[in-house]
Design a protein around this nucleic acid. Structure first.
Length: 822
RNA sequence: GCCCGGGUGGCGUAACCGGUAGCCGCAGGGGGCUUAAACCCCCCGGACCGCAAGGUCGUGUGGGUUCGAGUCCCACCCCGGGCACCA
């Protein structure tokens, strides 16, 4: 009878059972209410690390819990299998990235299975699967036809380490590559872009209704960066106000048109197309040198002037006419103005903008205040509100009124208008890489850019390529791939050799999961409608901006193209971002060499203990220091549950129900309510604690002199097993199987608490005198205020404390508290 | 600099609506079982004073609101994260 729990044997057996029986396979036409749980699909980097374990523990808990509450739960898994590490490994070893990647996928798959996480593996999607590539490319051609994909030459971020172009988002604030850490420089290339900015406003507006962590929503709003203002055009002139010989003019964007009378100079970005055209002969050498320097300076150096007064810029010799004052102001080039934002040109108002103030101070430019700063103002630029001054017809107005009036004036004059700008840029998707999804277009001398027709998809990269650390994809060196015929005119043509950013792959994989084998379409709209949007998405906060924003963009674009259901505007209704795993304060990562391998724990304490430890250590959204993870306590707890469940604890007797038995039944009902509520609010640590508390109580109960009543202990243990089933699936599966003649715990209904049993009939009432606890009394739960007050005043301890003083006031909050003020 | 989080025992944490601060676990201590150890079972652990009953203090710091504040308000300190010339 005293059989010990063989962790390894039991866990392996149940994992095989779930896999072989497809226990968590689910069909689209399942009649139960649908629920879609998704963990961000991983890059296959080999065996799972603790971050994976944490992620999939949460996901698996929800899958199992929701199944027990009667839902048809879609829980798919796949692999984000294109990307740099595999290609870098190929360059190093000469092995094809596919071999490398497939091995890693197998490794990761088996370690995911070892933590007991269950999926509908029939739906597996991998980015590098030709079937997925085909639809990825198909969508690209639809984007192209809709004008959502376009090509343009642009100065792009170039990482010398990765030998590729990076999106702005992949360049860190200090100007280095987020992956390799190399300093990023600029290059001009013809690149493919997706028109994300077309959806800027909708992407911004829809954030409000998402059940996402507030900080993620804030990050997305900041990233989109809407700002309202005005654009207006100014004539380029010389010092005396005479128009430029070529009639040039420049357009600026400002959020503060109300301060236009204070514009004392204007600035173009160094890369601005007009920069050289308007530069005077005598300034040409200096300006050219400046432009050259700006282009070759990395972002890191360009930002190095931050915080200092060293605003780098150069005078062009040209002027422009401030339309508000009618006077010419000098025109500068400066690297604090960015070509990619607004119009790449600004009006500079040093009195009301600190950056302009700094620049003006360095270059000796004049400063004219147009808003009266408050009395005693000792700062420099004043960006607050106040009455306008030195501004003719804006004088005396406050900021909102002056902005409105200035915009109205610009529109009346026909030189400008109110407008909105977004910080969000179009998404640069071209990568000069081999191990990615080829961009499906060919270039024909007669037909131009031609999308590869549907019946010729997928365009697959050839296998016989050489992996060399050049700046270009190995595809460019492969004549058989590069040279092709035009699908339109059958003439000679060349293929696009760039591949897509891997964020493209992850922007719609959750849709493919709904219909993973569809050979006619990326997915049928009805299949997407059956599951989407994802009810619960779970992943790391590191994807708070890019992946989530791109996936949102894709969903909207596909809905508008009729590929996805038109009403599907957002992919992820609820998002949960889990905390990072640290070790001794450091981020746990391969590069820091401080990994704790899950495998070691799986080999000893097992998956249930590891899962429970992740759940118990603290709130799921908080970072976790592995040193604080009490794996032993969790393993010990599971052993206690096992002994309880296999009848090894205390004595069990047949008898009619006693008060002690009823107390246990009540405790069990309270636990059902507690765990159910905790699950709903992602408070797994307290759910585990509550289960431990009940186990402690059951031990005392069963080991007491009176022993445990047969029916009571059976009810308690069975309920506990059900409640633990989503958290510790192996042990509970085994216990239920043994206790219930081969039945399966995960097929049982989630228990429901009886409200009558949850309610307490007596509670401990605290009696305070002047806010300090002086006594505790057991009182009926339904006691009224007067009764509570009478009991409190009758307490000997209270009377001793009052020491003859008469109460001035009594606050009675039955049944929990009475406070006597004396 | 701006925007979010967060500071509670030796440690990870709990206290969900302003009402018993410290549930649960780790580490520690005591006892039982054992020839012995491990495992296991029971009990005790915020600080200080006290033989005890009991008392005083205590949730980063300083104020405030309230009968009552870990919880609300103001100011500040510290830690973590995000953004950072976006005009």
């Amino acid at each position: 009878m005293a059989e010990s729990y063989d962790v390894q044997e039991v866990e392996a057996r149940w994992q095989a059972f779930w896999r072989d029986h497809g226990t968590y396979d689910v069909d689209n036409d399942d009649p139960r209410p649908h629920y879609y749980v998704l963990c961000m699909y991983p890059y296959p980097s080999g065996a799972a690390h603790m971050g994976h374990v944490r992620n999939y523990t949460f996901g698996d808990l929800i899958v199992r819990h929701r199944t027990m509450t009667g839902h048809a739960v879609l829980s798919p898994m796949g692999f984000d299998s294109f990307g740099l590490p595999a290609e870098n490994a190929a360059i190093k070893t000469g092995r094809h990235p596919r071999e490398f990647t497939d091995e890693r996928i197998d490794e990761l798959t088996s370690s995911i299975m070892r933590i007991g996480a269950v999926y509908d593996w029939r739906r597996r999607v991998t980015s590098h699967d030709p079937a997925y590539i085909r639809w990825n490319q198909w969508i690209f051609t639809r984007f192209l036809a809709a004008g959502l994909a376009y090509r343009k030459e642009a100065p792009v971020n170039w990482c010398p380490g990765c030998q590729t172009v990076l999106a702005n988002e992949q360049v860190l604030a200090d100007g280095t590559c987020e992956r390799s850490g190399d300093v990023v420089t600029k290059r001009d290339l013809e690149q493919w872009f997706f028109n994300t900015t077309r959806y800027a406003q909708e992407l911004l507006d829809a954030i409000d209704d998402l059940e996402w962590p507030e900080r993620v929503k804030v990050m997305q709003r900041n990233w989109i960066g809407r700002s309202e203002g005005a654009e207006f055009t100014m004539a380029v002139v010389d010092e005396s106000g005479t128009p430029h010989a070529d009639g040039h003019s420049l357009t600026v964007f400002t959020t503060r048109p109300d301060t236009s009378f204070g514009m004392t100079y204007a600035v173009l970005a160094p890369e601005h197309p007009l920069a050289l055209a308007i530069t005077t002969e005598e300034r040409r050498d200096e300006v050219e040198a400046f432009i050259d320097q700006a282009r070759n300076t990395s972002e890191i150096d360009r930002m190095s002037s931050e915080g200092s007064l060293d605003k780098r810029g150069v005078f062009t010799g040209a002027y422009c006419l401030n339309p508000f004052t009618g006077r010419p102001v000098p025109l500068y080039l400066a690297d604090y103005v960015l070509l990619g934002y607004g119009t790449g040109a600004i009006m500079a108002v040093p009195a009301e903008d600190q950056r302009d103030w700094d620049f003006a101070a360095v270059h000796g430019l004049s400063i004219v205040r147009t808003i009266q700063p408050p009395d005693g103002w000792e700062g420099e630029a004043f960006t607050g509100d106040g009455p306008h001054i030195n501004s003719e017809w804006l004088d005396g107005l406050d900021k909102p009124a002056a902005i409105a009036k200035a915009i109205a004036w610009l529109e009346a004059e026909g030189i400008g208008h109110g407008t909105v700008n977004y910080r969000l840029r179009d998404w640069l998707v071209s990568r000069q890489r081999f191990w990615g999804c080829p961009i499906p277009v060919v270039y024909c001398d007669t037909c131009g850019v031609v999308p590869v027709p549907d019946d010729q998809l997928p365009v697959l990269a050839p296998d016989d390529v050489e992996f060399l650390p050049t700046g270009e994809s190995p595809l460019r060196q492969h004549a058989g791939f590069l040279h092709t015929t035009c699908p339109t005119c059958a003439g000679p043509a060349t293929r696009e050799t760039d591949t897509m950013d891997t964020f493209v792959d992850s922007s719609w994989y959750f849709l493919r999961f709904c219909d993973p084998t569809n050979a006619e379409l990326p997915f049928a709209p009805e299949a997407a409608a059956a599951w989407m949007p994802v009810d619960q998405y779970i992943g790391g906060v590191e994807h708070a901006i890019l992946h989530l924003l791109y996936a949102r963009f894709y969903t909207k674009a596909l809905a508008d193209l009729g590929v996805a259901p038109a009403e599907l505007r957002e992919p992820f209704s609820r998002l949960f971002t889990q905390g990072m795993i640290r070790l001794g304060g450091d981020k746990m990562s391969k590069s820091k060499g401080n990994l704790v391998a899950p495998e070691e724990i799986l080999d000893t304490d097992g998956a249930d203990a590891l899962r429970l430890a992740h759940l118990f250590v603290g709130p799921p959204q908080d970072d976790v220091d592995w040193e604080g993870v009490g794996i032993e306590g969790c393993a010990r707890f599971l052993q206690r549950v096992w002994r309880l469940g296999t009848g090894q604890v205390g004595t069990v007797v047949d008898r009619t129900e006693t008060d002690a038995d009823i107390a246990v039944v009540r405790a069990v009902h309270r636990l059902i309510a507690k765990v159910s509520d905790d699950f709903d609010r992602w408070s797994y640590n307290t759910a585990v604690a509550a289960c431990m508390e009940l186990v402690n109580e059951l031990y005392r109960y069963a080991q007491s002199d009176d022993g445990a009543r047969t029916e009571t202990i059976a009810f308690a243990v069975d309920t506990l097993t059900l409640l633990l089933a989503p958290m510790a699936p192996h042990l509970t599966a085994e216990l239920w199987f043994r206790r219930h003649d081969g039945a399966h715990v995960h097929e049982q209904a989630w228990p429901v608490a009886d409200p009558a049993m949850v309610a307490q009939d007596t509670v401990t009432m605290v009696v305070q005198v002047n806010g300090k606890v002086r006594d505790r009394l057991e009182v009926p739960a339904d006691i009224d205020a007067a009764g509570a007050e009478a009991l409190a005043l009758g307490s000997a301890k209270v009377q001793a404390n009052l020491d003859g003083r008469s109460p001035r006031k009594v606050i009675s909050r039955p049944p929990n508290l009475v406070n006597i003020v004396a």
